[in-house]
Structures are given as C-alpha cells and as structure tokens.
C-alpha cells in the first residue's frame, strides 16, 4: 500500500468524522493497525478537530463534571487513613489483623468483580435481544415496503391523485384503486396532522347527481408511520374526497372542510 497516497486521499479525515461505511471503517482500522504512520496522522487530524469543535463551546466544560458525577452517584474512591494510637504495640496481632483484612478485602473484591461480570453479561444479553428485535422490525418494515411497491407497480391498479382544496391548498393525497380486490390504498402523506378531536373521513363520490358514500374515518392517522391506509371500496366511484370531521365521522361530508379531491379518469 502506498501510505502517502492513502493519507492524501482524505479517507482518514472521514474516519475521524465517522462518515465512512461500516466496511470502509473496518478497512481503515486494519490499515492503522498495520502502519503506525496512519495512526500518527489520525491523531493529528483528531486533535485539530477537537480544537475546532471546542471553540464552539460557550463555557469551560470541566466544571460540569461534578454535576455529572452526582447525577450518576459516583465518587472517587477516597482512601481513608486510620492512624494507630499505639505505634509501639506488638506487631504480631496487627499483622494478623492486616492479613485478615487483606484476605477479606480480596474476597469482597472478587465477589464485586464477579457481580460486575454478571452484570456485564446481562447488559450484553439485553443489548443482543434489543438488536434482534430491531432486525425483526426492520425485516417487517422491508416486507411491508416491498408489498407496497408491488401494489404501486401493478398495471391493473388505477392511480388517482387528489389535489388540495380551498381550506388547505398545499395538501395532497393519492388513491390507488385495486378494482379486482375492491380495495383502495390511500397515501395520505401530504395531509397535515388532524387537530385534536378531528379525524379525516374518506368519501367515494358519484357525479350527476353528486352522491357521497363514506368509506370510513382514518382513526390511526398520527400513529401510522407510512401514512398508507388500505380501505375496502365496492362502489363504482367517480371521484374520491377527504374531509376533516369530528371524531367518529359524519353522515355526510362537511364541504367547507374538504381537504383533497380527485376524479377518476374514465
């Protein structure tokens, strides 16, 4: 490896910033183990960054360590000095006591060590369990995303954009209508959070004469992360609309609170 070139590439600066991928990080780590010049360079970069960032500090941070220690209930192990009243007394019983204390102390120390290790194992196990859960969640998210993508790509699915209306011109939504399965997928990402005590209600509309049919309310809008909702629709809809209604929904749409509307192109 050409060390000069490696340093000049700028990869070590990114290593210190934490901007590299896990794989690159590992590679740099191994290279540093092998070539001390690289470590030397990393230390210089790190020291410069520490000084630069520290210049943005409003106060001297050292004074805050005591607060941190007390928040963590920590104290430095102060050794107490016990003075002996009779320095001339017989050393044999004292050395006996000293031996006992050292033995007892050693025993206590091993017990503490053992407990600490057990604690560490427990923490690591918890951590592992937590990471496994995260992987599982990520896998579920991924399969959901794949499922959504397959729906969006299906040629038999009608895509109907719903544009923002007078009450909220910047709102938008999309309806993907799967006629064969009588369901619509509503992508409501472009709607604002509904205020307290209000919900969005989705309407299927037929024109001439204008007849709205409620498809239901979106009660879990805030909790849903991807803001995509699956709704059954058996109507011969000609348009879809979304209104803001009091919790529980309304019999007929409050047209002053019509957020988005879009017609199905024939």
């Amino acid at each position: 490896m050409d060390i000069e070139e490696y340093i000049a590439s700028g990869i070590l600066e990114l290593y210190v910033a934490g901007s590299l991928s896990e794989k690159e990080n590992q590679e740099v780590f191994e290279a540093i183990q092998q070539y001390p010049e690289l470590l030397n360079e990393v230390l210089k970069i790190e020291s410069a960054i520490i000084k630069l960032t520290a210049a943005g500090s409003p106060i001297d941070a050292k004074q805050l360590f005591t607060t941190i220690k007390s928040k963590l209930n920590l104290s430095n192990n102060d050794t107490k000095v016990v003075s002996l009243d009779k320095p001339k007394s017989n050393w044999i019983p004292y050395s006996g006591w000293a031996a006992a204390i050292i033995l007892g102390g050693g025993l206590l120390w091993s017990i503490t060590q053992n407990n600490n290790l057990k604690e560490t194992i427990r923490v690591v196990e918890n951590e592992k369990e937590f990471l496994e859960q995260k992987i599982e969640i990520a896998n579920t998210d991924l399969s959901e995303a794949k499922n959504l993508l397959s729906i969006l790509r299906d040629k038999n699915i009608l895509s109907i954009p719903l544009g923002g209306q007078q009450v909220s011109p910047e709102s938008y939504a999309n309806v993907y209508w799967d006629k064969t399965n009588n369901s619509i997928y509503l992508d409501a990402q472009g709607l604002p959070e509904p205020p307290e005590g209000k919900v969005y209600q989705v309407w299927s509309l037929t024109l001439n004469p204008l007849t709205p049919t409620s498809l239901g309310t979106i009660d879990d809008f805030s909790e849903d992360d991807n803001k995509i909702f699956t709704i059954t629709n058996t109507n011969e809809s000609q348009a879809f609309g979304i209104t803001l209604e009091p919790t529980g929904g309304s019999e007929s749409p409050t047209l002053e609170q019509l957020y988005t509307l879009g017609t199905v192109s024939p």
Binding site: I49, I50, K51, T53, A54, A55, G56, S57, P58, I59, D60, A61, K62, L64, F65, T67, I68, K71
Partner: peptide, 27 residues
C-alpha cells in the same frame, strides 16, 4: 471527560444554539 467535553459541548452548542440547553445535553 477532560479530553473531549469542550469539544462535545462545542458540537452540541452549534446544533442547539442555546448555552443552557447545550450544557444539559452535553451532560
């Protein structure tokens, strides 16, 4: 802590832009 706390306080302060909040977050 003595090696890195000023640096971390500087980074946090740059992001939150409030001395008191920065000190609290840095702790």
């Amino acid at each position: 802590y003595n090696m890195y706390s000023d640096s971390m306080l500087g980074v946090v302060n740059t992001i939150v832009r409030d001395n008191d909040i920065a000190q609290e977050v840095m702790q």
